Computed example of a mutant assay.
Amino acid sequence: MRKKLASVLVFLLVTAVLTACTGPQSYTETFDAPGTWRVESSGDVVGEVRDGVFDFTVNADELTSWTTAGEDFSDGIFSVEATQVAGPNNNAYGMLFRVDDENDNFYSFQISGDGYVWIGRYQDGGATEAEPIVNDWWFESPVINQGNATNKLSVQAEGQNLIFFVNDQEVGRVTDDAFSSGDIGLMVRTLGVGGVQVQFDNFNLDPLPLIHR
């Protein structure tokens, strides 16, 4: 009886360990504390955690800047709230996922203050031209709250299948296998006029629904 009980306990322990190792990933960042996100303060870029948000300003007229969290994720539902605070509406801001920091390779999901979407991949940090993977370049979307407003960006990533949402409305989907896992990040771009300020909050990674696993 003792041997049988011991075998059952070993089986349960192994099962628990395997479940922990292979179970769905989750993450929550409310920016109530500095955490692990990279910050910067220079003439061109100011990015800092303060007052419960990641406050990100790009002052240069033509610049792409991003920050990462120092994490490593693959599949799940990534989401972040982004609020444009100041600057011209001809801008770009959004989230990064599956970031390879060493080589500056990542997927980027961007919107603009004047109601456009850009979804694509960067390689070598854009040293080679960034490549769109949904539509040919920027495309207009009526679901974006334009100007100084808040938008929720979400990506459902399951292997090579990626679905993109703004304010819980789908804006694109694609099958792409360029990057399978990596860090998460935030991005702000200026497109000719500087002073774009965006505040990010509530970056979450939720497990995929059971039907997808």
Rank of each mutant, 00 (worst) to 15 (best):
V171M: 11
M187S: 03
G194C: 09
A127F: 09
L5R: 13
W118E: 04
C21S: 07
E40M: 06
G52A: 08
G113K: 04
D32W: 04
S74T: 05
V166S: 12
M187K: 15
F179A: 09
N89K: 09
E131I: 08
E131V: 15
V39S: 12
L162A: 03
A92M: 05
M187C: 05
V14S: 15
V134R: 01
T15E: 07
N204E: 13
F97A: 04
K152I: 15
G35W: 10
D55N: 15
P209A: 11
D44H: 11
K152H: 10
G87I: 00
L208R: 10
V117Y: 01
F164P: 03
G47P: 05
T190Y: 02
F164N: 08
L153K: 09
A86P: 04
R213K: 15
T57V: 01
F73H: 12
A33K: 13
G70W: 10
G35S: 06
V117D: 12
A92N: 07
D32P: 07
G125F: 04
V85N: 07
V80H: 00
V10L: 15
C21A: 12
P24Y: 09
N167A: 03
W118S: 14
A6N: 12
V134L: 07
V198Q: 00
S180I: 07
K3T: 04
A86V: 06
W138Q: 12
F200A: 10
V99T: 02
S181T: 05
V143P: 00
E129W: 02
G94D: 13
S74N: 13
I211V: 05
E71K: 08
F165E: 02
N145C: 04
S79L: 13
T128V: 11
Q199S: 08
F97V: 11
E140A: 07
E81D: 14
V193C: 01
G70Y: 03
A149H: 07
T64I: 02
S65Q: 14
D206L: 14
L5P: 12
G194E: 08
G172W: 09
R50H: 09
D176S: 10
N145R: 13
D32Q: 14
D176N: 14
V49R: 12
A130V: 01
V10S: 12
Y107W: 06
R121C: 06
